[in-house]
Design a protein around this nucleic acid. Structure first.
Length: 323
DNA sequence: AACCCCTCCAACCGCTCGTGC
DNA sequence: CGCACGAGCGGTTGGAGGGGT
């Protein structure tokens, strides 16, 4: 027993939208709004489309002030930084890029940005690997990289090169976070005088995240990640955003939620190259499968007290609080 | 010129979450 | 409390277009 379909698939048109459909949908929404009911909307305007399809078309294409293509370097930086920080929460990332849709960013990431990074990586491997002669071979090589096979190269140097190419300080190899990381600002010496708000209450955090466009139920905190509230990961990362303006960050309580430890979901998502192979392979037990993290905590703490530089979004980037 | 392969992106699909009853 | 339904999200797909051989 599957879930009932959202619409009568037999009487619903699929595929590319015609200009007529576009104009119908656009003019209706501009005049009446969506009415809060996408399912009913296509019927109202006589479109043989699924409500979901209408919604998608509006959000991704017809909505005013949308930008298509032509991602700037700054946008690249923002996307990369946010992806490293929060993973594939495209809607949250899109919320930081006015005029961009989650679908756009997702496509851009999957088709270009990821390859851009991998390309950088491959460039650095040139000295060690014969370059493929044909496009097909190149693609094969590329695919191999995608799967995380960096076994014969120094991915950390590639990573450094990439970030420098992106006008960013090098993304460090983030050590695994402690099970109970220090609260941001409170324990961060660099921020001891910091006036930044410390979102020590879960509700504020949640509101902030919701404001940013994410959907963060309590489950996300307590069940999905099986971690106590105010742990690192997404939450801590958002703590840090305001201080992006400072460009340098102590990573002690930050980042690496995707390569987090302590039995929480690990999300390298093909981004091993961000962290270096050592993270994903050599230290796999620490990083990827950290069941017992006790010993590693020390390493983490030591590391986190050194000057670790979190990749800022951009020289000029300052965190925009959504309206 | 024809074919093959790859890239890109719009659109679809299935799932989760929130909400109302 | 549980169910149904709509909204929203992220992953995936399919086709158009372009480049290489």
């Amino acid at each position: 027993m599957g879930r009932a379909p959202c619409c009568d698939k037999a009487n619903v048109k699929k595929g590319p939208w015609s200009p007529e459909e576009d104009s119908k949908l656009k003019s209706y929404i501009e005049q009446h709004g969506t009415g809060g009911n996408w399912i009913a909307l296509p019927q109202k305007i006589g479109l043989k489309r699924c409500g979901k399809s209408c919604r998608l078309r509006w959000l991704n294409y017809l909505r005013p002030n949308l930008k298509h293509g032509g991602f700037s370097e700054e946008e690249d930086n923002i996307i990369c930084s946010l992806y490293v920080t929060i993973g594939s929460r495209w809607s949250v990332i899109a919320a930081q890029l006015p005029g961009r849709t989650d679908n756009d960013i997702k496509n851009y990431w999957n088709t270009k940005l990821k390859k851009k990074l991998l390309g950088k990586h491959r460039t650095n491997n040139k000295e060690h690997h014969q370059q493929p002669r044909s496009r097909k071979q190149a693609s094969t090589t590329n695919n191999t990289s995608v799967t995380g096979d960096f076994s014969s190269s120094s991915s950390s140097s590639a990573t450094a090169t990439y970030w420098s190419h992106m006008h960013m300080p090098m993304l460090p190899l983030p050590p695994p976070p402690p099970p109970l990381p220090p609260l941001p600002y409170a324990e961060d010496n660099n921020n001891s005088n910091n006036e930044e708000p410390s979102f020590n209450d879960q509700d504020s955090l949640r509101k902030l995240l919701i404001k940013l466009g994410g959907r963060f139920s309590n489950n996300n905190f307590n069940e999905d990640y099986q971690r106590p509230p105010l742990d690192d990961g997404v939450i801590m990362n958002f703590h840090q955003f305001p201080s992006y303006e400072n460009h340098h960050h102590n990573i002690g309580s930050s980042s690496s939620c995707m390569v987090s430890a302590n039995n929480y979901p690990q999300r390298l998502d093909g981004l091993e190259f961000f962290y270096g192979e050592e993270m994903a392979v050599t230290n796999d037990e620490k990083i990827i499968e950290t069941g017992g993290a006790s010993n590693n905590n020390n390493e983490w703490c030591e590391s986190s007290n050194t000057t670790l530089i979190y990749p800022p979004l951009h020289e000029d980037f300052s965190y925009r609080t959504p309206q």
